[in-house]
Amino acid sequence: MKWQWQDVFSATALLFEKLKQALGGAIDYVSVRIACLADTPVPMPEILTANRLSDGDVVYRAASGTWVADIDAAEVIDDAERRTAAEAAALGDVSASLVVEVATIAVSVADGHVVPKRLRERIRAFGPTVKSDHRPVTA
């Protein structure tokens, strides 16, 4: 079979799964990041995002430690120490069954508006880009 770029991805994913198994599941992406990146400089502003457990809504971590729907209210982090603390606190909120799928994402900030770098995160923040006449307008 011909080599495909997806194989690299599968190998990485598999390695992570093996590591997870070896450690009895006590590992997740964020902890790995904390371990790997704690001492590295923050390349660009970042924010923490998650999905709220009860309804799945996309939320962002505010400086107060609460999770809010408004991305502009997210705490924009640009130093490593602050990030480590925020990520640890966010993991605490996972343990407390408030949120799931915590991730730290790169953003840019302009005119007080926070915009994620990656398209995936922009779609999470601002909603599907599909258009449809029959969709009712919702709050």
């Binding site: 599941g25 999905n51 457990l53 009860s54 309804d55 799945g56 809504d57 996309v58 996972v94 343990s95 407390a96 069954s97 799931v100 799928e101 995936r120 779609i123 999470r124 909603g127 599907p128």
Partner: peptide, 28 residues
């Protein structure tokens, strides 16, 4: 039990998937 925090996400995820509940980008 999940909403009360009595079971973890790792414990709950296979249970919700068995009942057709995924977590996608914006929501379940």
């Amino acid at each position: 039990r999940r909403l009360k925090g009595e079971i973890t996400e790792d414990e709950f995820k296979p249970l919700r998937l068995m009942n057709g509940v995924y977590l996608q980008l914006h929501a379940y």
